[in-house]
């Protein structure tokens, strides 16, 4: 297992470095996307347009030699435009023509511009990892990762994803605006004659092996209890509810959130070449995995409480209650 952990970290690092050759900065986002890929979870990105999301996904697919497709969602897009459609073939028989979702890495750009009907089709496919058309089920390729983006600025003519749909994403990453130095690097790199062509550093099999290794990481009862305390503390009701959630939360994180936080903690443990997840890993995984799974109330909105601030408060309270069992 120690060897596996070492291999995981090295592979992960090599992919990250390869992506970093093309994508300037955004280290946390790259790490989050890779973690989602390794943990078999989908990623929701929220950020301004033009921050390199497409470049990131394309580079990633090239580095891993995986199939890539990009879907730009628009209000007039139909489910079949995503999942595929039946067409009359040369032999006068209907043939299924797979949609853009049939790729290893799918960039679902501005998913909130699609109608709920199209969104549902997309999200169902994400969940089932298969598409049913003409009474026939078509399995999506493995590995399969959807990286959806939301534009937080333009709200007119959009259909924000409902909470139940958001819960299907493994993590939600906030793409920050690049720093001045990063911006300078981006400008120089994209306006020069020199183009960066990512090379393959890992393959489909490596991704699948990474997923197996992630599942092997040990989560001891102490750490598991801590993670569950965090999840429970996001709920406004119940025994473990924190005071901040009682005040600001409308709904807490779902059980899928608990699964996600533990899984991401495992990935982080492997990145430290550890065979066990720690409380530190859980805390690190807290915001990416839960920020889109909690629903704050009006008071939180009025007080300017963001999900991240809310989760920081929850972590602080749970951390205070998590005392050293040997009091000296």
């Amino acid at each position: 297992m120690q060897e596996d952990a070492k291999w995981f970290r090295e592979t992960f690092e090599s992919v990250r470095q390869e992506v970093a050759r093309a994508v300037v900065g955004q280290a946390d986002i790259v790490e989050g996307v890779l973690a989602g890929l390794a943990a078999n979870g989908h990623v929701l990105l929220e950020g301004m347009p033009g921050l390199g999301k497409t470049l990131l996904v394309r580079t990633l697919s090239e580095a891993l030699e995986l199939g890539f497709s990009r879907i730009q969602f628009t209000p007039d897009m139909m489910p079949a435009d995503v999942t595929g459609t039946q067409v009359l073939g040369e032999n006068r028989a209907f043939e299924y023509r797979p949609g853009p979702i049939f790729a290893n890495i799918v960039l679902a750009d501005e998913i909130n511009r699609a109608t709920p009907k199209t969104q549902s089709a997309m999200l169902e496919a994400m969940q089932e990892r298969a598409v049913t058309a003409g009474g026939k089920r078509h399995q999506l390729p493995e590995p399969f990762l959807v990286m959806a983006t939301q534009n937080p600025v333009e709200q007119e003519g959009t259909y924000p994803l409902p909470e139940a749909q958001l819960d299907r994403f493994f993590v939600k990453l906030i793409v920050p605006y690049p720093t001045k130095a990063e911006l300078s690097e981006i400008v120089l790199r994209t306006t020069s004659r020199e183009e960066v062509a990512p090379s393959r550093v890992a393959g489909q099999g490596d991704v699948l092996r990474m997923r197996q290794i992630v599942r092997s990481v040990v989560v001891d009862p102490e750490v598991l209890g801590f993670a569950l305390s965090l999840v429970v503390a996001t709920h406004p009701e119940g025994e473990g509810a924190s005071s901040v959630s009682k005040r600001y939360a409308r709904y807490g994180a779902s059980p899928r959130g608990a699964q996600s936080i533990v899984t991401l903690a495992k990935v982080f443990a492997l990145l430290s070449e550890r065979q066990n997840a720690s409380k530190g890993d859980v805390l690190r995984a807290l915001k990416p995995t839960l920020r889109h799974r909690i629903l704050l109330n009006f008071e939180a909105e009025a007080d300017g409480i963001t999900p991240d601030a809310f989760l920081d408060s929850v972590a602080e309270q749970v951390g205070k209650a998590d005392l050293d069992p040997v009091r000296i």
Binding site: M1, E222, A277, P325, V326
Partner: peptide
């Protein structure tokens, strides 16, 4: 309790508490 305490104080990142979990590679942990 002692394992958890040492983990916490020595910054072992739960290695000691994990070493008590019954898995195949427990010796490695």
């Amino acid at each position: 309790a002692l394992r958890a305490s040492v983990d916490r104080r020595a910054g072992l990142e739960n290695r000691l508490t994990a070493s008590a979990v019954d898995v195949d590679f427990v010796e490695e942990i």
